[in-house]
Protein backbone atom coordinates (compact mmCIF):
# COMPACT_ATOMS: atom_id res chain seq x y z
CA UNK A 1 0.00 0.00 0.00
CA UNK A 2 1.50 3.26 -1.08
CA UNK A 3 1.50 6.14 1.28
CA UNK A 4 0.67 9.53 -0.13
CA UNK A 5 2.42 12.43 1.45
CA UNK A 6 0.20 15.41 1.99
CA UNK A 7 1.79 18.72 1.03
CA UNK A 8 0.81 21.38 3.53
CA UNK A 9 1.64 24.98 4.06
CA UNK A 10 4.77 25.55 6.15
CA UNK A 11 3.92 26.22 9.73
CA UNK A 12 5.08 29.30 11.52
CA UNK A 13 7.25 29.25 14.58
CA UNK A 14 5.72 28.07 17.81
CA UNK A 15 6.54 31.22 19.68
CA UNK A 16 5.07 34.57 18.71
CA UNK A 17 8.06 36.45 17.28
CA UNK A 18 6.17 39.71 17.20
CA UNK A 19 7.10 40.43 20.80
CA UNK A 20 10.75 39.89 19.99
CA UNK A 21 10.38 42.04 16.86
CA UNK A 22 8.76 44.78 18.92
CA UNK A 23 11.52 44.68 21.51
CA UNK A 24 14.20 44.69 18.81
CA UNK A 25 12.56 47.65 17.06
CA UNK A 26 12.21 49.59 20.28
CA UNK A 27 15.82 48.79 21.10
CA UNK A 28 17.02 50.17 17.77
CA UNK A 29 14.85 53.26 18.09
CA UNK A 30 16.01 53.87 21.66
CA UNK A 31 19.66 53.67 20.67
CA UNK A 32 19.16 55.92 17.64
CA UNK A 33 17.04 58.36 19.66
CA UNK A 34 19.53 58.55 22.51
CA UNK A 35 22.37 59.10 20.06
CA UNK A 36 20.40 61.94 18.49
CA UNK A 37 19.72 63.52 21.87
CA UNK A 38 23.39 63.29 22.82
CA UNK A 39 24.54 64.76 19.50
CA UNK A 40 21.96 67.51 19.49
CA UNK A 41 19.81 67.91 22.60
CA UNK A 42 16.30 69.13 21.82
CA UNK A 43 15.62 72.60 23.13
CA UNK A 44 12.36 73.86 24.48
CA UNK A 45 10.82 76.39 22.13
CA UNK A 46 8.29 78.80 23.57
CA UNK A 47 7.73 82.28 24.97
CA UNK A 48 8.52 81.45 28.60
CA UNK A 49 11.72 82.51 30.30
CA UNK A 50 14.50 80.02 29.64
CA UNK A 51 12.95 78.83 26.38
CA UNK A 52 14.10 79.64 22.85
CA UNK A 53 11.70 82.15 21.35
CA UNK A 54 9.54 80.75 18.54
CA UNK A 55 10.92 81.81 15.19
CA UNK A 56 8.67 83.32 12.53
CA UNK A 57 8.76 84.56 8.96
CA UNK A 58 6.35 87.39 8.17
CA UNK A 59 6.18 90.58 6.18
CA UNK A 60 7.72 93.55 7.94
CA UNK A 61 8.07 97.26 7.44
CA UNK A 62 11.24 99.17 8.25
CA UNK A 63 10.43 102.44 6.56
CA UNK A 64 10.46 101.40 2.92
CA UNK A 65 8.73 98.34 1.48
CA UNK A 66 7.02 95.47 3.27
CA UNK A 67 9.58 92.70 3.04
CA UNK A 68 9.97 89.17 4.29
CA UNK A 69 11.38 89.18 7.79
CA UNK A 70 12.70 86.31 9.86
CA UNK A 71 13.29 86.80 13.57
CA UNK A 72 16.35 84.56 13.90
CA UNK A 73 18.09 86.38 11.05
CA UNK A 74 18.16 89.53 13.15
CA UNK A 75 20.00 88.17 16.17
CA UNK A 76 23.30 89.86 16.84
CA UNK A 77 25.32 90.52 19.95
CA UNK A 78 22.53 92.68 21.33
CA UNK A 79 19.43 91.73 23.27
CA UNK A 80 16.09 91.97 21.50
CA UNK A 81 13.00 93.67 22.84
CA UNK A 82 9.93 92.22 21.14
CA UNK A 83 6.88 94.35 21.79
CA UNK A 84 3.37 93.45 20.70
CA UNK A 85 1.17 96.43 19.88
CA UNK A 86 -2.26 96.97 18.42
CA UNK A 87 -2.56 100.30 16.60
CA UNK A 88 -6.14 100.57 17.85
CA UNK A 89 -5.39 99.83 21.49
CA UNK A 90 -5.46 102.88 23.82
CA UNK A 91 -2.64 101.56 26.04
CA UNK A 92 -0.49 100.95 22.96
CA UNK A 93 -1.06 104.55 21.97
CA UNK A 94 0.80 105.57 25.12
CA UNK A 95 3.27 102.72 24.81
CA UNK A 96 4.52 104.40 21.64
CA UNK A 97 6.13 107.09 23.79
CA UNK A 98 7.57 104.57 26.25
CA UNK A 99 9.20 102.67 23.41
CA UNK A 100 10.58 105.88 21.94
CA UNK A 101 12.24 106.69 25.25
CA UNK A 102 13.56 103.17 25.71
CA UNK A 103 14.97 103.15 22.21
CA UNK A 104 16.85 106.38 22.74
CA UNK A 105 18.36 104.94 25.94
CA UNK A 106 19.13 101.36 24.90
CA UNK A 107 19.52 101.51 21.14
CA UNK A 108 23.16 100.42 21.29
CA UNK A 109 22.51 97.37 23.48
CA UNK A 110 19.04 96.31 22.46
CA UNK A 111 17.41 95.87 19.10
CA UNK A 112 13.73 96.70 18.96
CA UNK A 113 11.10 94.76 17.06
CA UNK A 114 7.41 95.53 17.18
CA UNK A 115 4.80 92.96 16.28
CA UNK A 116 1.65 94.73 15.14
CA UNK A 117 -1.39 92.63 15.96
CA UNK A 118 -5.10 93.19 15.60
CA UNK A 119 -6.94 92.10 18.70
CA UNK A 120 -10.35 90.52 18.26
CA UNK A 121 -12.14 93.49 19.76
CA UNK A 122 -14.92 95.54 18.21
CA UNK A 123 -13.52 98.66 16.57
CA UNK A 124 -10.05 97.23 16.15
CA UNK A 125 -9.58 97.31 12.42
CA UNK A 126 -5.93 97.56 11.54
CA UNK A 127 -4.16 97.55 8.20
CA UNK A 128 -0.64 97.84 6.85
CA UNK A 129 -1.26 101.50 6.04
CA UNK A 130 -2.27 102.08 9.64
CA UNK A 131 0.78 100.20 10.94
CA UNK A 132 3.04 102.33 8.74
CA UNK A 133 1.38 105.50 9.96
CA UNK A 134 1.59 104.42 13.60
CA UNK A 135 5.30 103.67 13.24
CA UNK A 136 6.19 106.74 11.18
CA UNK A 137 3.74 109.10 12.86
CA UNK A 138 2.24 110.16 9.58
CA UNK A 139 -1.15 111.53 8.66
CA UNK A 140 -3.67 108.67 8.86
CA UNK A 141 -7.09 108.73 10.47
CA UNK A 142 -7.57 105.31 11.96
CA UNK A 143 -5.38 104.75 15.00
CA UNK A 144 -6.87 104.39 18.51
CA UNK A 145 -9.96 102.51 17.28
CA UNK A 146 -10.32 104.96 14.44
CA UNK A 147 -10.72 107.94 16.74
CA UNK A 148 -7.25 109.47 16.38
CA UNK A 149 -4.90 110.49 13.65
CA UNK A 150 -1.75 108.38 13.84
CA UNK A 151 0.38 111.49 13.46
CA UNK A 152 -0.68 112.47 16.97
CA UNK A 153 0.68 109.30 18.62
CA UNK A 154 2.76 110.12 21.71
CA UNK A 155 6.51 109.77 21.36
CA UNK A 156 8.71 110.16 18.34
CA UNK A 157 8.56 108.24 15.07
CA UNK A 158 9.99 104.75 15.44
CA UNK A 159 12.96 103.71 13.38
CA UNK A 160 12.83 99.96 13.98
CA UNK A 161 11.02 97.13 12.25
CA UNK A 162 7.28 96.59 12.54
CA UNK A 163 6.04 93.08 11.70
CA UNK A 164 2.58 92.43 10.30
CA UNK A 165 0.75 90.05 12.61
CA UNK A 166 -2.77 91.20 11.91
CA UNK A 167 -3.79 87.53 11.64
CA UNK A 168 -2.36 86.93 15.14
CA UNK A 169 -0.31 83.91 14.07
CA UNK A 170 2.80 85.09 15.94
CA UNK A 171 0.77 86.27 18.94
CA UNK A 172 -0.72 82.77 19.28
CA UNK A 173 2.70 81.10 19.20
CA UNK A 174 3.97 83.59 21.77
CA UNK A 175 0.92 83.26 24.06
CA UNK A 176 0.29 86.99 24.04
CA UNK A 177 -2.46 87.72 26.59
CA UNK A 178 -3.13 91.29 25.43
CA UNK A 179 -1.39 94.45 24.33
CA UNK A 180 0.95 96.14 24.92
CA UNK A 181 3.06 93.12 25.74
CA UNK A 182 6.82 92.77 25.87
CA UNK A 183 9.36 89.98 25.85
CA UNK A 184 13.11 90.38 26.04
CA UNK A 185 15.47 87.92 24.34
CA UNK A 186 19.18 87.50 24.81
CA UNK A 187 21.56 87.46 21.87
CA UNK A 188 20.87 83.74 21.26
CA UNK A 189 17.12 84.16 21.13
CA UNK A 190 16.48 82.80 24.60
CA UNK A 191 13.65 84.47 26.49
CA UNK A 192 15.12 86.24 29.50
CA UNK A 193 12.09 88.33 30.48
CA UNK A 194 8.44 87.73 29.85
CA UNK A 195 5.97 90.33 31.01
CA UNK A 196 3.44 87.61 31.79
CA UNK A 197 5.79 85.89 34.25
CA UNK A 198 5.57 88.56 36.90
CA UNK A 199 6.07 85.96 39.64
CA UNK A 200 9.69 85.73 38.53
CA UNK A 201 10.21 89.48 38.78
CA UNK A 202 7.46 91.10 40.90
CA UNK A 203 6.44 94.66 40.04
CA UNK A 204 9.08 94.94 37.34
CA UNK A 205 8.06 96.68 34.14
CA UNK A 206 9.90 96.52 30.83
CA UNK A 207 11.91 99.64 31.59
CA UNK A 208 13.14 98.23 34.89
CA UNK A 209 13.81 94.88 33.26
CA UNK A 210 16.01 96.48 30.61
CA UNK A 211 17.82 98.47 33.28
CA UNK A 212 18.51 95.26 35.20
CA UNK A 213 19.44 93.11 32.19
CA UNK A 214 21.42 95.64 30.20
CA UNK A 215 22.67 97.76 33.06
Amino acid sequence: MSRRRKISEPKGKDEDVRVIALLATLGVVTIVGLAAIIVSPPVKVGPLEGEIAPDFIEKAYSGAEWESFRLTDTYDERMTLVSFLDTDCPHCWDEGATLSNLHSTYNNDVQFITIAVQLSISGHDSSRDEIEAFRDKTNYEGCYSGSQNCIDRPGSAHSWTYVDDIDLSIAKDWDVPGTPFSIILDSNGEVVWNQAQSDNHPNEDVEQALARLVG
Binding site: A36, V39, S40, P42, V45, I52, D55, N188, G189
Partner: peptide, 14 residues
Protein backbone atom coordinates in the same frame (compact mmCIF):
# COMPACT_ATOMS: atom_id res chain seq x y z
CA UNK B 1 14.37 61.06 9.74
CA UNK B 2 16.31 61.13 13.00
CA UNK B 3 19.10 62.98 11.22
CA UNK B 4 16.69 65.68 10.08
CA UNK B 5 15.51 65.96 13.69
CA UNK B 6 19.10 66.52 14.78
CA UNK B 7 19.45 69.25 12.15
CA UNK B 8 16.14 70.73 13.33
CA UNK B 9 17.43 70.92 16.92
CA UNK B 10 20.64 72.55 15.75
CA UNK B 11 18.77 75.11 13.68
CA UNK B 12 16.56 76.07 16.61
CA UNK B 13 19.62 77.24 18.51
CA UNK B 14 20.94 78.85 15.36
Amino acid sequence: AVWTWIIHNQLVIG
